[in-house]
Design a protein around this nucleic acid. Structure first.
Lengths: 151, 151
DNA sequence: ATGCTTGCAAAAGGTTTGCATGTAG
DNA sequence: CTACATGCAAACCTTTTGCAAGCAT
């Protein structure tokens, strides 16, 4: 997935910010690794390959920026790291991704489901709470680990 | 909600652990504050009232232990603190609690819904992933904040 | 030129750990 | 008595921040 530089620059300009090599490279790494749940350190390692001078602090500052621009999503798997992934380009699908976390091997996979929309409507009517985003994590055992266990 | 000391001691004994004043007090604080989402520091402050000598490290060690015994649940609201609350005594209700997080005032409330059971069955059939626990967080604006905004 | 950005290193802040002492069983 | 548990302080580790130097516009 390629980064649209013009669109990126336009988004930055709207906030009085500048397009830099570092920001572009961080965004590109995330765009090239969709659904990969990268930590700041992961991004740093990959960015350094073609950009050895970049600092880890810049990666942290950039992911914060990309979050504010809503270009990426934040994922917290409760393992002490905050992870990031490129947001879905399709607005309709953007909030329908959930995560499956294997308690044995730690593998994380995503699946899509829109059943929560009904739940959100119900919460609004019953409690007056207006939902704008959600996060669903399902913990359990993945197919591979289940099969290994049965041997 | 009172703590069943005999049951607690039995659980500890099964793992070769001892029942101490500190462990009991931490569990009691959590039992007396259901659905309160206490941080380790919160627990520490409340425990210190009647037990000034306890150390913060003991609180951390104890919540880890209580998690392993499945007496309490862990909640991560992405605010830099890990929070804890007593688990539902009713096994059937144990995994049906979800959280509503207000993006304006930060208030957290819980609601109950079992619609995820159907989702979990579907995930098992479609992907072979066996779900044993889940966490659902809905972000949005609570009734109070919505009303204030409309004035 | 102006002022946003960066890199470095230091700081921050919640959580964990080492170790000598205390205590439950 | 023995092994597990505690308290204290230091260590950890991810993330944030201060500041002088570096760029984008």
């Amino acid at each position: 997935m390629a980064v649209d530089r013009e669109k990126f620059q336009k988004l930055l300009k709207e906030k009085g910010l500048k397009m830099t090599r570092q920001r572009l490279v961080v965004l590109e790494v995330l765009a090239e690794n969709p659904e990969q749940h990268l930590t700041a350190e992961d991004i740093y390692e990959r960015v350094k390959v073609e950009n050895p001078d970049i600092g880890l602090a810049t990666v942290y500052r950039t992911v914060q920026l990309l979050l504010e621009l809503e270009l990426i999503d934040r994922i917290n798997l409760d393992d002490g790291f905050i992870r990031y992934e490129i947001g879905s380009l399709d607005e309709e699908e953007h909030h329908r991704y959930h995560h499956l976390i294997c308690l044995r091997c730690g593998k994380v996979s995503a699946f899509q489901d829109d059943m929560l929309e009904a739940l959100e409507t119900g919460v609004k009517q019953a409690l007056g709470f207006q939902v704008v985003d959600h996060e669903v994590k399902l913990y359990g055992y993945c197919k591979d680990c289940l099969e290994k266990e049965h041997k």
